[in-house]
């Protein structure tokens, strides 16, 4: 049995959880084993879980749980079901619980998985290593596997013809050693780690007051904004926008880099984006070598023109 952690927020299944479920489905097909989805954050059965691949659903509690309480629940359920695989997203919950679960289950752990493949009747798991400069593929000879899926790497498929059955088994919620005092949301936009389109800018912008053209472009495309490290270090942009080796590593569908040189440490955080578009006035900027599309020119002319052209296009359709 595969146990998948499914988080529900504001009555919606988190996209990162659907990605985990989609990856679990592939394992389920290769190994011929069933999937039990454990829903955290709701006591309402999301009927559509079957179409994403869940065979069974457990809804242990509607309360907000601390991470250690989620860990304990997944452990109880894994033991109850003699689970061979635990699959979850390496989102903020996953970062706090995946490796703890692996320790408690004496399991083989791979975190940051971006793909699975069949190797005979076994499964191999691929992840990025060396800051995105290479990939590594592993197998898990161990009896139990814990797989934490890198956000934005797995296409979500809802083509399974399953009807998920709700189980009424009860599990106990243990007292927590952690106490969440507050959850402070900084941005109203899609969080950077989950964004499918990212508009990013660097020192080429010259001054923080010039960011309006970047914000406008992001709004027009429904994108989230990001920045290079020096820009967040000098306080032009908030820290949570910093991408790269020492900031956030992201893998959006489209990454638009404006006035960023493309230093190796910056590329380390963005080179897994599916398509990269670079706007830079220096034809020798290293970023062009990593790009799919490039425009060489002055961003202060190009970006406002682009914004106008998109507006025009949108008003005509």
């Amino acid at each position: 049995m595969i146990i998948t952690v499914v988080e529900i927020q504001d009555n919606k299944i988190k996209k990162t959880s659907l990605e985990a479920l989609s990856l679990a489905s592939k394992i389920s097909e290769i190994k011929g084993i069933k999937i039990c989805a454990v829903c955290i954050g709701s006591d309402q059965l999301p009927v559509e879980l079957g179409s994403y691949g869940a065979d069974e659903v457990i809804l242990p509690s509607a309360e907000a749980l601390e991470n250690d309480q989620i860990t304990s629940l997944i452990l109880q359920i894994s033991k109850d079901k003699s689970a061979s695989h635990i699959v979850l997203s390496l989102n903020s919950t996953g970062k706090n619980i995946a490796s703890v679960l692996a320790a408690k289950l004496n399991a083989g752990l791979i975190s940051g998985v971006i793909a699975v493949q069949a190797k005979g009747s076994d499964v191999t798991y691929t992840k990025n290593v060396f800051s995105g400069k290479a990939t590594a593929t592993y197998s898990i000879p161990n009896a139990v596997s814990v797989i934490a899926v890198s956000p934005n790497s797995i296409p979500v498929l809802s083509d399974k013809q399953k009807i998920a059955t709700k189980l009424d088994t009860r599990f106990s919620i243990v007292p927590s050693k952690l106490k969440t005092l507050e959850k402070r949301i900084i941005t109203g936009k899609t969080p950077l780690a989950e964004a499918s389109i990212v508009v990013s800018a660097g020192r080429g912008l010259k001054d923080p007051s010039n960011w309006n053209i970047i914000e406008d472009l992001a709004d027009l495309l429904g994108a989230t904004t990001a920045c290079s490290r020096p820009v967040s270090d000098i306080g032009w942009r908030p820290h949570h926008e910093h991408v790269g080796q020492t900031g956030l590593a992201i893998r959006p569908n489209v990454y638009i880099a404006i006035g960023i040189s493309g230093a190796i440490q910056h590329l380390a955080g963005v080179n897994n984006s599916r398509k990269i578009i670079v706007i830079n006035k220096d034809p020798e900027a290293p970023f062009f070598k990593a790009a799919d599309y490039g425009i060489c020119g002055d961003l202060f002319e190009i970006v406002p023109k682009l914004n106008e052209a998109i507006k025009k296009y949108k008003s005509n359709t």
Binding site: N91, S92, L178, K179, T180, L181, E182, K183, R184, I185, I186, T187, K189, T190, P191, L192, A193, E194, H240
Partner: peptide, 8 residues
């Protein structure tokens, strides 16, 4: 926390 911070 996605898009913010959790205070614990």
């Amino acid at each position: 926390l996605e898009g913010g911070v959790r205070v614990i």
